[in-house]
Simulated assay, not measured.
Amino acid sequence: MSQIKYYAPGAPGGGEHGRRRSVLSSALDLRSNELKSAKFEWIDDASARKRLEELPLTSRDRFLIDLLYNTGIRVGEALSLFISDMHFGGGGPDIGCRIVDPHFHVRLDNPVQNRARAKGLARNLFVSRPLVDRYIDYMISREETLGENDSSPHVFVNMRDLSGYAGTAMNYSGVRKLIARCAKLIDFPLTGPHMLRHTFATRLVRGIGVDEVSLDIVQAILGHRHIDSTRIYTHDNENAMRKALVQLQTRHIVLGGSE
């Protein structure tokens, strides 16, 4: 009748440090089932997506937005990344990785310093050259800004000296503030970092601006344990199918004669 549910730090019910609570089993929670069948929020405005892609930001913020937007990882997974996970120059025997192309590892067991939680499945994700360049820009800026004060293994750290927090791991609150700032700058209601993940997945599944990708591949990229979690990104396919079909020329049949 009940199950234990984890509420992440900063999320409704999670408080500052996150907590686990006993809740009604999802199979019996009608409200939960309704939410699962509801349409996911994504950036459905092409011009808003372009504005987000071109938005001038600091090197750290630009890399974080691009990472979420172009790989679909969860914000908890991004905040859990360690520098040692970022094999953007490819792997090699010296680091115990045989993957040649630029990639990074999503791990579930990094000893994080910011209470971030990586869930789903551990996986390896490949990256494009532009994303590699963004990372290099950020790491150069990070070294110049923090210098000897840079000792955190986390990829994303606080860059400004906010009461001694410079160089410490970035947290959920910092990401939410960044997303809120981006929403104002691009004049589009971004509800949170999850919206970038939903946008990424929707574009892949529906082939929006990219080649359409099969559900099983999208499932692997997103780290979903079950394909049903990925099928939600086929939302609004009925409307898309309807629009496609009404564009077809209707055959007019003349009764009692040839067409």
Score class of each variant (00 low, 15 high):
M170P: 01
R107S: 14
V213H: 05
S80M: 04
L215V: 12
I221K: 02
A183K: 07
G15P: 06
R98W: 11
R49E: 09
E144G: 02
L57W: 12
H154P: 00
G192A: 10
A201V: 10
T168F: 07
F82E: 04
A8M: 10
D187L: 03
A48P: 05
G147I: 10
D94W: 15
V175K: 04
K119E: 01
R117M: 04
R203M: 11
V23N: 03
K243A: 05
F40K: 05
L185I: 06
V155P: 03
P153V: 09
P12R: 13
K177P: 00
H194K: 09
T199G: 04
V23S: 02
Q113D: 08
V132S: 00
N124Y: 07
R203T: 01
H105I: 08
V213Q: 11
D66V: 02
A122Q: 14
Y69T: 08
N110C: 06
G223I: 11
F88K: 10
D29G: 10
S173M: 02
L57C: 06
E41R: 13
R107F: 12
V210R: 07
D45H: 13
D236N: 13
T145L: 08
E41V: 12
K50C: 09
M195K: 02
E54V: 03
K177W: 01
M1H: 07
E53C: 06
Q113M: 05
R20G: 00
A11Q: 13
